[in-house]
């Protein structure tokens, strides 16, 4: 069960200052002012941008307004990735506030999923939680929960209620003491220099010999390129929630404390900035 509540709080209340700018090609009735918002790292773009939509709808013609989507320096931003992951992956070395361009036309069908309502985000979120619990507890915990418990998890995220969310999420973070951890660690490794969306494999928190697996062990097994070579310069940064944990950090602890609300440990591998 997760302890170190201060870490959980810091993770939950991580914020990214963002400036939303309307795409210049959009037809407007008057000049669109930028919209500033502190985005929660653990939430989803389309879940927290209702105000942004409302703000820009005031200036664009209603006939021209299609589904809203976001882009950063030419890269369409996937709403189904947590905001923190999008920032770490595409803009971690940018000057703050993070400038995101808002579009209401030319939806990139090949790059993005449609998000007509919050229920789509809820479905995606709950499916991630169920997938993670299948890896952690063979779905036993999530299946034992009632519908209202599932709703509590979702409402906790939607309304940014840490206590409400963690009152239920702690059940998903429990494991038998004798097992020493979850069955498998739910993780996803994102890379900027690849067409592959992410790497996801089955990896246990403890070796068959009883040794505790660390973040370094996971990368060595799954994505060894991310590790620094002996004597050579560091080429990649391994970032979770905007920080670089030490490679000797136990994976089980990371999964319990640095997982996103969808129960997955989202790990970004980004090149070390050249300057």
């Amino acid at each position: 069960m997760a302890d170190d509540k201060d870490v959980l709080r810091d993770v939950w209340f991580g914020r990214i200052p963002t400036c939303f700018l309307l795409n210049q090609d959009e037809v407007t009735e008057r000049e669109a002012e930028p919209y500033y918002l502190l985005l929660p790292r653990v939430s989803y773009l389309t879940l927290v941008t209702d105000k942004v939509k409302k703000h820009f709808h005031k200036v664009i013609r209603t006939d021209d307004a299609e589904e809203m989507w976001f882009e950063y320096e030419g890269t369409p931003l996937k709403w189904h990735y947590p905001i923190g992951v999008l920032f770490d992956l595409h803009a971690s070395n940018t000057v703050l506030p993070w400038s995101i361009t808002v579009h209401f036309k030319n939806f990139p069908e090949r790059d993005l999923l449609h998000c007509p309502s919050h229920s789509v985000i809820e479905a995606h979120f709950m499916s991630s939680i169920k997938e993670a619990d299948a890896l952690k507890h063979k779905s036993q915990v999530v299946n034992d929960m009632q519908k209202k418990d599932h709703k509590q998890l979702w409402m906790g995220l939607q309304n940014d209620k840490f206590d409400q969310f963690w009152a239920m999420n702690r059940k998903l973070m429990e494991y038998p003491t004798e097992d020493g951890g979850f069955r498998f660690i739910p993780f996803r490794i994102y890379q900027t220099l690849s067409d592959r969306p992410f790497i996801q494999k089955q990896f246990r928190p403890v070796s068959p010999e009883g040794h505790v697996h660390t973040l370094g062990d996971l990368l060595k097994e799954v994505y060894p390129v991310a590790l620094p070579t002996e004597g050579g310069p560091k080429r990649f940064q391994v970032v979770i929630h905007g920080i670089e944990p030490l490679l000797e950090t136990p994976l089980q602890w990371l999964s319990e404390h640095l997982s996103h609300p969808d129960s997955f440990l989202h790990i970004c591998v980004i090149p070390v900035p050249s300057d």
Binding site: D4, D6, V7, D10, V11, F13, G14, R15, I16, P17, L38, L96, H241, G242, I243, E244, P245, L246, E248, T249, P250, W253, H257, L258
Partner: peptide
């Protein structure tokens, strides 16, 4: 030390971003 490192880094992150 790894736990202290995570705590320190999270605080440092918030000092910069938040």
């Amino acid at each position: 030390s790894w736990k202290n490192h995570v705590r320190g880094e999270l605080q440092q992150r918030d000092q910069t971003e938040k």
